[in-house]
Simulated scan of single mutants.
Amino acid sequence: MRETGPLPKDHPPVAAKKIGLLLVNLGTPDAPDKQSVKRYLKQFLSDKRVVEIPSIIWQPILRGVILNTRPAKSAEAYQLVWTEDGSPLAFYTHKQAERLAGKIDGVMVDWAMRYGNPSIGTRLNAMKAAGCDRILIAPLYPQYSGATTASVHDAVFDAIAAMRWQPAIRLLPAYHDDPAYIDALATSLERDIAALDFEPDAIVASFHGMPQRTLEMGDPYHCHCQKTARLLSEKMGKELIVAFQSRFGRAKWLGPPTDEILEALPGQGKKNIAIFAPGFSSDCLETCEELAIRGKEQFESGGGENFAYLPCLNDSDISINMLEQLVRRELSGWI
């Protein structure tokens, strides 16, 4: 074995050791146009964690049908929620990282997207180059699923597999039942409901949907969603209606479907409602367009009168304080 000695003169300098924190969310196209959305959907829908159909069957469908039809429609939806700061998801994830960096001394805080930019690989390489030899990965999914949390883990370990000198890695666990998360949700919701100019007859908790077979195959996502809703309901002393949104394809998905619930509530005497999305750490296409815009239309088409979409935790003080508690716990022993 070669003895330790001076580095070659052309060897890059070794950076001082640092601790890193990388926040990761799902992803967003670079722009609200057809080509950008097509690139994003190709990466997203090619993830075998997301679509569990053999590639030999799925890829011809994806490339031959879906990527030639869906991008234009999705681009129109993104255009409705895009701002001068970009997509809401990228904006809020960036702000969360920025605000956490100001609260946790001695830690380099960055952010990445599982699909799209900035990618997990580029940010991990940048953190490693900056001297981070210990990095906490924080997938911003409160409820665990193979299609979300595990996919982030895959991307992280694919990235460090290419590194000769790998950093130590920790992974933030799902926090669906963590008191800090439940308290943050309850505080945010109670504040937002109190600010409404009407009293909701019903409060709907809309989680992102998953195919029913994920539950049957042992994925804990459905159970995590139900536990979040139960704990939150107990904390607030209010009944919550649990629903699942964003169905895709012909397979059976977790239910009841959010759109059907919204259309049916007025006929059940629930003509004034509030809806929120506790499975999303930041507002995004699925909340700003699918719930706040299309959800309102669906509710009103059923005879509803007053509709309020309550925003995600985003980069509020409530959110940042909660995230700080979670990551400090996982950074224990490093800081």
Rank of each mutant, 00 (worst) to 15 (best):
G267R: 05
I19D: 01
T122H: 11
R230F: 04
A264V: 08
L185K: 00
V81M: 13
S282P: 07
G116K: 10
Q166N: 05
P60A: 05
T28G: 03
H222C: 12
T258I: 10
A194Q: 13
R2V: 15
T258S: 09
E239Y: 07
K238T: 12
T83R: 06
L45H: 02
N272C: 06
I53C: 12
Y309D: 02
M210K: 02
W165M: 14
V109A: 04
T228Y: 01
G5C: 10
P179A: 08
L313D: 01
F276I: 00
M108C: 00
P173R: 06
V24Q: 03
A15P: 04
S281L: 07
I293E: 03
K235V: 09
G146Y: 01
V156I: 14
L185G: 01
K270G: 02
E3N: 13
I19S: 05
A202N: 09
W253Q: 04
G237D: 10
P139V: 03
P12Y: 14
A155K: 09
A184M: 04
L80Q: 14
P220F: 07
R2F: 15
W58M: 01
R99K: 15
Q268P: 10
Q43H: 13
M1S: 15
E98W: 09
E263S: 08
S46F: 11
C132N: 05
Q96Y: 06
I203E: 03
A15E: 14
N125S: 11
A155D: 11
D283W: 02
E300T: 09
T214W: 07
R114P: 12
L172S: 12
E239F: 06
K17I: 15
G255P: 00
A90C: 12
K271Q: 14
Y221W: 07
I56S: 10
A184W: 04
E98Q: 15
I135Q: 04
L232R: 03
E76A: 13
R70E: 05
V109L: 04
F248W: 08
D197H: 14
G116Q: 14
G116N: 14
M210R: 05
F244N: 00
Q325Y: 04
G64T: 11
D158A: 08
K227P: 13
I169K: 10
E286I: 11
G86R: 07
C223A: 13
A159I: 06
T149H: 07
C132F: 03
G106H: 14
D192Y: 02
Q35R: 12
D201H: 13
P6V: 06
I56P: 08
L254V: 10
E216G: 07
G267P: 02
K38R: 15
V65W: 14
K17Q: 15
A16F: 11
A161K: 12
L189K: 01
